[in-house]
């Protein structure tokens, strides 16, 4: 029962993060807050990827002198493939955030505001 709950806690947490992030992105008009929302979505995604790779009795997927990954022909380690995918996802999130911030800096210089509504009015 505890094992079952442990996994669900993380799944629910990742869903909550993504829900919060989506809500922020859809409702806010401030560019900086939208970037924060995107970051929260990214964190939720990363948590989700790690969660599907993990179960409470798993060991780390690194061979050391004391850490046996394979017992009786069965792998007992956590799934290493999603862990390598999450590395990629983190780096991609970082790159998107850096670019978004650069565009936001430039928008602030050219328009003097970060409010999406005001920017749209000025473009008319």
């Amino acid at each position: 029962m505890v094992d079952f709950l442990q996994n669900w806690v993380y799944l629910t947490g990742s869903m909550a993060l993504i829900g919060i992030g989506l809500y922020i992105v859809l409702t806010n008009t401030n560019i900086f807050r939208i970037i924060v929302g995107l970051n929260i979505i990214d964190s939720g995604t990363n948590l989700f990827i790690v969660t599907i790779a993990w179960h409470p009795k798993s060991v780390m997927p690194i061979y050391t002198a004391t850490n046996n990954l394979v017992v009786n022909g069965h792998v007992i380690a956590a799934d290493p493939l999603p862990q390598s995918l999450v590395l990629t996802a983190i780096v991609i999130g970082l790159g998107t955030t850096a670019l978004a911030l650069a565009i936001a800096v430039k928008i602030y210089q050219k328009y003097g505001t970060l409010d999406v509504r005001k920017i749209k009015e000025e473009d008319r």
Binding site: V25, I31, I34, L38, L99, I103, K106, K110, D123
Partner: peptide, 11 residues
Amino acid sequence: RALGGAFKYLV
């Protein structure tokens, strides 16, 4: 105006 379009696309 390029900046607004690019940001929207990014999001």
